[in-house]
């Protein structure tokens, strides 16, 4: 038994040493140090430069918010489909990755107040005829009107292959409302989806409009265009917020205050205009 305990202690000590050297894990609850995860593949929100640096709207915003909260932040990259389990597993303390605040995600993590909001829409090759309801809005909160609009959309999309990033509000929308009309293909990140759209493996993609603006600026993006309606409300969530563990309510309060302060002095709007060309900051 003693041997067993000593062994356990040794293993734990080793593991502790390894994990501490491995990662600047935030363990202090007074939040002087914070590890923030982002995807690094969702321009212009967050992206990775050729030399491996993380840049983008959310990187700038995170540094601004951290300065306001007076904490020292480290930003790490994490693949999208593991980003929520990673938060709850304690790999980092916050997610800033263009993550929309939705009821489903709220079941497992908490969110700050939203900082930006941009509706979802379709991306199609320029050679393709426009989808119906171009530029109109479908608000899922207005059930009667949105049901009719979605039925019309469904018949226009019959038999098409539509791509979306896995585990996003866009993929959920397609699954919930259009699964009987379309074939849904989900991707680990938007980069793969764009490659498949360019190759013609999928007929169209469904993504956040602010993401699409930046995708069009990349090589090959000039052959694509936005089409069909903008979808908002309901399961599409209330804009993007900082993802946090449910237990860390004190951290949520800090982020909420920082986001509101950043909006109040105009920093948030300035940053969105810089990265998105339009002001998509949530108003307070």
């Amino acid at each position: 038994m003693i041997v067993f305990r000593m062994g356990l202690a040794a293993v734990t000590a080793l593991a502790l040493a390894m994990s501490m050297s491995a990662m600047p894990s935030a363990m202090a609850k007074d939040w002087t140090k914070l590890v923030i995860a982002t995807e690094g593949a969702f321009p212009p929100y967050n992206m990775t430069t050729p030399d491996g640096k993380l840049v983008g709207f959310e990187i700038d915003m995170a540094h601004d918010l951290c300065a306001r909260m007076k904490v020292e932040c480290t930003i790490v990259a994490q693949d999208w489909d593991g980003i929520i389990p990673g938060l709850n597993a304690g790999k980092y303390d916050a997610i800033i990755a263009g993550m929309s605040i939705t009821p489903k995600r709220r079941e497992v993590i908490d969110f700050s107040v939203p900082y930006v909001s941009s509706p979802a829409t379709f991306e199609v090759p320029k050679s393709m005829a426009d989808l119906p309801m171009l530029g109109e809005r479908i608000n899922l909160d207005d059930k009667a009107a949105s049901d009719a609009a979605i039925a019309k959309l469904g018949s226009a999309l019959k038999g098409k292959i539509v791509g979306a990033q896995v585990s996003t509000i866009q993929a959920d929308f397609l699954k919930t409302y259009l699964s009987k009309d379309i074939e849904l293909r989900t991707y680990p990140s938007n980069a793969e989806q764009d490659l498949d759209l360019a190759a013609g493996r999928i007929d169209m993609a469904f993504a956040s409009s602010s993401y699409l603006v930046s995708a069009f600026a990349k090589p090959g993006g000039e052959k694509m265009k936005m089409s069909g309606p903008f979808v908002t409300g309901g399961m599409m969530g209330a804009g993007s917020g900082v993802g946090l563990r449910k237990a860390d309510t004190d951290l949520k309060d800090k982020f909420d205050a920082a986001i509101k302060a950043s909006y109040a002095d105009g920093t948030m709007s300035k940053l969105t205009v810089q990265w998105f060309k339009i002001d998509v900051a949530v108003k307070y």
Binding site: S19, K29, K91
Partner: peptide
């Protein structure tokens, strides 16, 4: 690791890179 850490009286999360 986190569970082991708690066992050893360590508070908070532990991660591996």
């Amino acid at each position: 690791l986190t569970r082991l850490g708690t066992l050893m009286g360590h508070d908070g999360f532990l991660g591996l890179n």
